[in-house]
Lab assay of single mutants.
Amino acid sequence: CHSECLGNCSQPDDPTKCVACRNFYLDGRCVETCPPPYYHFQDWRCVNFSFCQDLHHKCKNSRRQGCHQYVIHNNKCIPECPSGYTMNSSNLLCTPCLGPCPKVCHLLEGEKTIDSVTSAQELRGCTVINGSLIINIRGGNNLAAELEANLGLIEEISGYLKIRRSYALVSLSFFRKLRLIRGETLEIGNYSFYALDNQNLRQLWDWSKHNLTITQGKLFFHYNPKLCLSEIHKMEEVSGTKGRQERNDIALKTNGDQASCENELLKFSYIRTSFDKILLRWEPYWPPDFRDLLGFMLFYKEAPYQNVTEFDGQDACGSNSWTVVDIDPPLRSNDPKSQNHPGWLMRGLKPWTQYAIFVKTLVTFSDERRTYGAKSDIIYVQTDATNPSVPLDPISVSNSSSQIILKWKPPSDPNGNITHYLVFWERQAEDSELFELDYCLKGLKLPSRTWSPPFESEDSQKHNQSEYEDSAGECCSCPKTDSQILKELEESSFRKTFEDYLHNVVFVPRKT
């Protein structure tokens, strides 16, 4: 048989008469490798580009789960590009990614509803959504962080984005990388972005840091009482949809009607710091009717980097990364020049730590249904340095008659930039024990000054392991946590139920 035959053949030295091919099969003959313009397919066939392209389009058009959109890589027609490569849609070739590779997620039936953290986790790592997304989240724990972890990498949506009755959302900033909504599939009414009845939605994105392009379709905003109209108009300008909307697409009466839409800028007039305090004062603000001013709200939190936005980490279910302080308005003076500047002394802060701070007014709604208010920009203030805590785990070892090696770990709280350490030492008198000992005694162990690591005695271990207080009263049991108490109650309830079950099964009433 021919060298490319495997198993047997019907005619000697003829690659077209093989029972099976050793390498690849091409047009009725066995070959060692697939010549151009053919590609290896499933490690035994040679196919042309049209064959591989037909497989790709067949799966793409069917949208069946589990099928493969075949691509070409290293002269092979394979189910998908290997790690580190992405497909070129024009020629199906796998090309190296520039940075992290995109991950295209194809949605069944063309859309997916995100109504819980669990459903959001199914899209973790996706960068391109081939379909439409509907966000409908009523509640949950730590929602802002969970949504950002699972949806934060999405850069492109081919269909539309719909935010509907998501009472738990305060902001859409968890879509931190969303840059493009194509609108290839539109919501009824030709809408590519749809926001309806979101009672706590206050911000779409921080438009000073976020760009969003909507290729096709219109915007729809109705019944978002805490979303200011200025935020919607800003989205029109940034996304390129200005002029597409009709009169009733953006409701003037049901958007922002319960919001404090600040239209003035508060400026800080005085800032002073110490290692654990920050004193702030800002310019006074009074609405047209000074009785509408209820006070100020001061927001602050630790910020290692200057990239904080107002609604980071917030949701309507209680999660809030900001510390909020309510401040009463100052006494009002008739003389504008003698107006008191409101302020606040922030206490209990960490030394040498940068804080993000902003302040906003708290006002009631005027009778004319106009909203007044003022808010400052987010500023960054760093507390002063102070003395560091003591170095940890000092170790001293003498390696000769004239040297001592000293080692330690950095302090747990540096409280500033540590530039150097101060080492103090003092000579001590020799131990009298060394002169009084009889060095001729056998088995004498000389006193040693070398360091030995501390260890816990058996008594201390027994005390720590004991669940009861000892007789001397030195140790006591740790208080039980809520989960331990709940577990004990469940076990007790189970024992009672099981005992009742045994009584009912074992003891049967005697027939009379």
Rank of each mutant, 00 (worst) to 15 (best):
K103A: 09
V104T: 09
C105R: 01
C105E: 01
H106A: 03
H106E: 10
H106V: 12
L108S: 11
L108R: 11
L108M: 14
L108E: 08
E109R: 04
K112A: 10
I114A: 02
D115K: 12
S116C: 15
S119M: 13
R124V: 10
R124Q: 03
C126A: 01
C126T: 01
G131I: 00
L133K: 01
I135N: 00
N136Q: 01
G139S: 15
N141A: 15
L143M: 15
A144W: 02
A144V: 15
A144C: 08
A144F: 15
A144H: 11
E146K: 15
A149M: 09
E155L: 06
G159E: 01
G159C: 01
Y160R: 07
Y160K: 13
L161V: 08
K162M: 05
I163F: 10
I163A: 02
S166F: 06
Y167P: 15
A168S: 01
L169M: 07
L169Y: 04
S173G: 05
F174V: 10
F175M: 06
L178M: 10
G183P: 02
G183Y: 02
E184F: 13
E184V: 09
T185R: 12
L186Q: 06
L186N: 05
E187S: 10
I188W: 03
N190S: 09
S192H: 01
Y194M: 07
A195H: 03
L196W: 14
N198W: 00
N198P: 00
N198G: 02
N198C: 02
N200K: 14
N200P: 02
L201Y: 00
R202Q: 03
D206Y: 03
W207E: 01
N211V: 11
N211I: 14
L212R: 00
I214F: 13
I214L: 09
G217R: 02
G217A: 02
K218C: 13
L219N: 04
F220L: 09
F220A: 07
P225R: 02
K226E: 08
C228I: 03
L229S: 09
E231H: 12
K234A: 05
S239G: 14
S239Y: 04
T241V: 08
K242H: 06
R244P: 11
R244I: 07
R244A: 04
R244C: 06
Q245P: 12
R247V: 09
R247P: 08
D249R: 05
D249W: 11
I250V: 13
I250P: 08
A251T: 12
L252C: 14
K253F: 11
N255C: 11
A259F: 06
A259Q: 14
S260W: 03
S260V: 09
E262L: 02
E262N: 13
E264V: 02
L266W: 01
K267R: 11
K267G: 06
T273S: 14
T273L: 04
S274H: 06
F275N: 05
K277R: 02
K277F: 11
K277W: 03
K277A: 12
R281I: 14
E283L: 06
E283T: 13
E283M: 15
P287D: 05
P287H: 10
P287R: 05
P288I: 11
D289V: 04
D289G: 04
F290R: 05
L294D: 07
G295R: 02
G295P: 10
M297I: 07
M297V: 03
L298R: 00
E302S: 10
A303K: 05
Y305W: 12
Q306T: 13
Q306S: 14
N307I: 15
E310S: 10
E310W: 06
F311K: 08
D312H: 09
D312G: 10
G313N: 14
Q314Y: 02
D315E: 03
A316E: 15
G318S: 15
S319I: 14
S319V: 08
N320K: 04
S321A: 11
W322C: 01
T323P: 01
V325M: 05
P329S: 05
P330V: 12
S333V: 07
K337P: 13
S338K: 11
Q339N: 15
Q339T: 07
N340A: 07
G343H: 13
G343F: 03
G348S: 13
G348Y: 02
L349F: 01
W352A: 12
T353A: 08
T353H: 11
Q354S: 04
A356E: 01
I357F: 01
F358W: 08
V363S: 06
F365L: 06
D367P: 06
E368D: 14
E368W: 15
R369T: 10
R369E: 08
R370D: 07
G373C: 03
A374H: 06
D377L: 01
D377W: 09
D377V: 10
Y380Q: 03
D384L: 09
D384Q: 02
S389N: 08
V390T: 13
P391T: 04
D393F: 15
D393H: 07
S400P: 04
S401D: 05
I404Q: 02
K409N: 15
